[in-house]
C-alpha cells in the first residue's frame, strides 16, 4: 500500500456470470468509480461496507493507523457497523418509522445535533424535517438518504470513508449541481474521504479529480478524470453536437 492511500482494496469473487478480479488504492479526497450498469460497481461498495463477503481479497482502511476490514486469507471479516464506513445505497431506503430529521440523526452521535441541523440546511431539507418518508417525492427521499450517510460520515471520529452509490441519479440537473458543489467543499473541509459510483460522464467530471474506470468486475484504468474519461467525454460531446445540428434541442 502506498503511504498516502486511505483505502487499499483487492477482491476476487464470482457473482452469477460476473467474475471480479479488482484491485485499487484510494489516495484522493474524492474518487469516482465509473462504469456501465451491471459492471459490478455496487458490489465493490457493498464489499467495502461489509454487506457482502468476497471469495478472496483484502480491504485495508486508513493511512496513519491502517485497519484491516477484510482479509479472507487470515479469516478477518470485520462486522459492517465496526468498519467506520458509511454507505448511501442506490435505492433510497429511509426508515419508514422515522421522520426525515430522525433518519438523518440515526447515524450521528447524540452530542452532534448541530451536524443534523447543518445537514438539513445544506441538503435543502429543513422544511421537510418533520415529514415521514412516505410523504416525500422520489428525489427528496434520495436527497435525504444521501444526507443521512453524509451526516454520519462527518461525525466519524477515526479515519472513515463515505460510499455513495449513484447519489444524485434521481435529481434534476440544477439541484444536483448546487448540491455537488456544496457537498464537495463541506466534505473536504471535514476531511471525509469519498468513493462514489456513477455511470454518468458529466457527473464524473463534476465530482472527481480521480477516476477508476471499471467494467466487467475489473479495473480498466485509474487516474485524473481528464485522462481516464477523455474518450467518453469526446463521444458525449459528439452526440450532443449531432443532436444540436439535427435540431433536437429547441429553445425553451
Amino acid at each position: 500500500m502506498s503511504e498516502r492511500a486511505h483505502l487499499s482494496f483487492a477482491m476476487r469473487h464470482r457473482q452469477g456470470a460476473l467474475v471480479f478480479d479488482a484491485a485499487f488504492e484510494l489516495a484522493q479526497p474524492w474518487t469516482v468509480l465509473f462504469g456501465p450498469s451491471g459492471s459490478g460497481k455496487t458490489t465493490v461498495l457493498r464489499a467495502i461496507a461489509g454487506l457482502m463477503r468476497p471469495a478472496a481479497g483484502q480491504i485495508v482502511l486508513g493511512c496513519d493507523t491502517p485497519r484491516v476490514l477484510f482479509d479472507r486469507a487470515v479469516g478477518i471479516d470485520m462486522p459492517a457497523h465496526r468498519r467506520g464506513v458509511r454507505l448511501a445505497a442506490q435505492v433510497a431506503t429511509l426508515f419508514p418509522n422515522m421522520t426525515v430529521r430522525e433518519n438523518i440523526a440515526y447515524g450521528v452521535p447524540g452530542d452532534a445535533t448541530e451536524v443534523v441541523e447543518e445537514t438539513l440546511q445544506r441538503f435543502h431539507l429543513d422544511r421537510l424535517s418533520e415529514a415521514m418518508p412516505w410523504k416525500l417525492s422520489g428525489g427528496e427521499r434520495q436527497r435525504a438518504a444521501v444526507a443521512r450517510a453524509v451526516a454520519s460520515a462527518i461525525t466519524l471520529k477515526d479515519s472513515g470513508l463515505l460510499l455513495l452509490d449513484e447519489p444524485f441519479a434521481g435529481l434534476d440537473l440544477r439541484l444536483r449541481d448546487d448540491l455537488l458543489g456544496d457537498l464537495r467543499s463541506w466534505l473536504a473541509a471535514t476531511h471525509t474521504p469519498v468513493l462514489s459510483v456513477t455511470h454518468d460522464v458529466g457527473e464524473a467530471f463534476q465530482l472527481g479529480a480521480e477516476v477508476i474506470k471499471f467494467d466487467d468486475g475489473r479495473v480498466l484504468r485509474q487516474g485524473p478524470v481528464e485522462a481516464v474519461l477523455a474518450e467518453e467525454r469526446e463521444r458525449l460531446l459528439d452526440q450532443l453536437s449531432r443532436k444540436d445540428m439535427q435540431g433536437e434541442f429547441k429553445p425553451l
Partner: peptide, 27 residues
C-alpha cells in the same frame, strides 16, 4: 422487513441489536 432497511442501518454504523430494536421492532 426489507433487507434494505437493515443494511441501511448497518451502513450507518448501527449494531445488529440496535437495528433490531430501532428499526425491525417498530416496523
Amino acid at each position: 422487513v426489507d433487507r434494505g432497511y437493515t443494511e441501511a442501518a448497518a451502513g450507518l454504523g448501527a449494531s445488529p441489536w440496535r437495528t433490531f430494536r430501532t428499526v425491525v421492532m417498530p416496523l
